[in-house]
């Protein structure tokens, strides 16, 4: 079956980048406001799913040659490594640390180890969601 999806494909090209930018915004906003790695990851995954809907699995996997299982494993490793930092400092596991820094352009910001952990969560969420959707979707 051949469908005419010019409108979908054209809008997707535009919308995809907005979704990705928004997901990054949500990811960083999660520090003090609603958001964070989990929602950010879901948004990114939904952006990629939109690509899958508009095009097909083959096109998307050429455009984004990512092995999502490996991505999940790396995300878990990032999260665990952040938490395991506390082993070196001999404080209870998952203890976090933060400080304020003056960054160029951004001004005074707090940098927090919890953000590294959240990066891991983000990668895991994208990896797992995409693995599930791809393995169901590829079942033709």
């Amino acid at each position: 079956m051949k469908t005419n999806d010019v409108i979908l494909q054209t809008t997707t090209k535009l919308i995809f980048f907005i979704i990705i930018l928004f997901s990054i915004h949500i990811f960083f906003a999660g520090h003090y406001a609603p958001g964070g790695g989990f929602v950010g990851g879901l948004l990114t995954a939904s952006g990629i799913v939109l690509l899958l809907l508009a095009y097909d699995i083959k096109t998307v996997s050429t455009a984004l040659p990512i092995n999502y299982t490996v991505m999940t494993a790396i995300g878990l490793l990032v999260a665990l490594a952040t938490a395991a930092g506390s082993i070196i400092f001999n404080v209870p596991f998952f203890t976090h640390a933060f400080d304020y820094f003056d960054l160029p352009l951004l001004g005074k910001q707090s940098l927090h180890t919890a953000m590294l952990f959240d990066t891991g969560v983000y990668l895991v969420v994208v990896g797992v969601t995409m693995t599930i959707i791809q393995s169901i979707g590829a079942d033709d």
Partner: peptide, 8 residues
């Protein structure tokens, strides 16, 4: 930890 490594 090892389970993650083996997943790679």
């Amino acid at each position: 930890f090892f389970a993650m490594i083996l997943m790679l």
